[in-house]
Amino acid sequence: MKFSRKTLGIPYAVFLLLFVVAPLVVLFYYAFTNGTGEFSLKNLTDFFSDPNTLGTLFYSLLLAMTTTLVCLLIAYPVAYILATSKMKSKPVIIMIFVMPMWINFSLRITALKEILTLIEGNLAFYPFLNSVIGMTYDFLPFMILPIYNTIVKLDGSLTEAARDLGANERRAFMRVTLPLSMPGIISGISMVFLPAMTNYVVLDMLNNSTFIMGSLIGSYFSAHNWHNGSMIALVLLGIICVFTLLTDRGDEKDARTGGALL
């Protein structure tokens, strides 16, 4: 066969078909069939008629929104201060903020758990608060980094122009800097919100016995209930798709890639 650069992509294309597309097809199949392989909508109606699963859906939305908001409120000032500071060693400082990302998350949560136990005595008293703290602790760098990257690239002369034209500092920030840092905010939100809906290990480790969407999949997995588990996964996938369409601006697609700063 004649050598062509196009053919080099075939292994990866086959790989994507087999291990990315096919699992989703199977997920669909299992979500809409029952144990005997017949088409059924029971899993779907199960999901939307069971107060437990609906409650879980709302609980995880609430938890994810709170976590995202807390992360944003902490990360924006930090990113703004770092990006606008006149220090020469900015890259080193932002590196220090991002470094925890490279320590295994389970070990970091273990550390946090010990501290929270020391402060609160018993973690079971404040399950929601602890989950928010735990997820903020885990995901904060993912919010700081994209916002910092956006603000640091902003053209400083725009703010200066606004000031020259008579805007006070607050107004210049609200009308110039903040709108221009929206792409960073949005990519930060998408990097925190979705993991916060699904990363149930953080809850598990912090003794929060409440379920979020991810833990539903986990519990059906342990019970070998593939059909209902698939339906949950599919609902989650739907939420992810909607969320991605809402936040996708095209240019920030590699946010998670840039997330490693490598």
């Binding site: 993991p195 699904t198 991810g214 999949i217 997995f221 698939s230 996964a233």
Partner: peptide, 8 residues
Amino acid sequence: ADVVTGFS
């Protein structure tokens, strides 16, 4: 979500 990738 990694949960969905792993499960599927």
